[in-house]
């Protein structure tokens, strides 16, 4: 401890991260506002969601964040750089698992005849999780790009792009952070 490499993420990354977080905060408060307008409906519809699946996805994303954090940490030390790749692969698998659970959840809702137009709760549920999922796919693409870049950089002993690593990892943690708040809002509040 003590001689850790300084935080090397460039300042611009935080324009995206804090910008996204601010807008998601706006989404959260908008959701809570509409929820208060028709609280019974929101309770009834929210009760139909599977809390277990929501919890499962929370744990999956937390695991993926751990993978990404350890991968970035491994990159800081030259002799441990090689360890970053399997950790990134782990993060990508977690991302894929998240998408799979979400698709299963959506599929079940559609089979039960529930969709984005059913009521206001489901509008928020599908839109907020959908927007998050869209971001997650972008995040997975970024992690994938990072993994490919890393593989070729390791093969040729080249420098690793700080921009790609910093942006991809911060973006991924931000997705985790957003889901951490989205999960209680949509699945837990009763």
């Amino acid at each position: 401890m003590g001689e850790r490499a300084p935080n090397q993420v460039e300042a611009g990354v935080w324009v995206v991260v804090l910008g996204e977080l601010s807008v998601f905060t706006l989404f959260f408060t908008t959701f809570l506002y509409y929820r208060a307008l028709s609280i019974d409906l929101f309770h009834a519809s929210s009760a139909t969601l599977s809390q277990t699946l929501g919890l499962l996805n929370t744990l999956i994303l937390l695991g993926s964040s751990w993978f990404v954090a350890t991968a970035v940490n491994a990159l800081r030390e030259v002799d441990r750089r090689r360890r970053a790749l399997p950790h990134l692969a782990g993060a990508l698998c977690c991302g894929a698992a998240f998408v799979a659970v979400k698709v299963f959840e959506y599929g079940r809702a559609f089979r039960e005849g529930v969709n984005v137009l059913t009521d206001e709760f489901y509008m928020f549920y599908f839109m907020l999780t959908g927007i998050h999922l869209l971001h997650l796919v972008v995040g997975m693409a970024l992690l994938g790009a990072m993994a490919l870049h890393l593989r070729s950089a390791l093969a040729t002993d080249a420098e690793v792009s700080e921009t790609l690593v910093g942006f991809s990892s911060c973006f991924w943690h931000m997705l985790d952070l957003v889901w951490i708040i989205l999960f209680p809002l949509l699945y837990l509040l009763h």
Binding site: N7, S65, V68, H173, L177, I181, P184, L188
Partner: peptide, 23 residues
């Protein structure tokens, strides 16, 4: 309480995983 816990978790992600505490 659940919301508080959520924001506390969010803070940990920011500070530890995103390394804001070293920023």
């Amino acid at each position: 309480a659940v919301l508080f816990v959520a924001f506390f978790k969010a803070r940990m992600v920011l500070m530890v995983f995103m390394e804001v505490r070293d920023a």
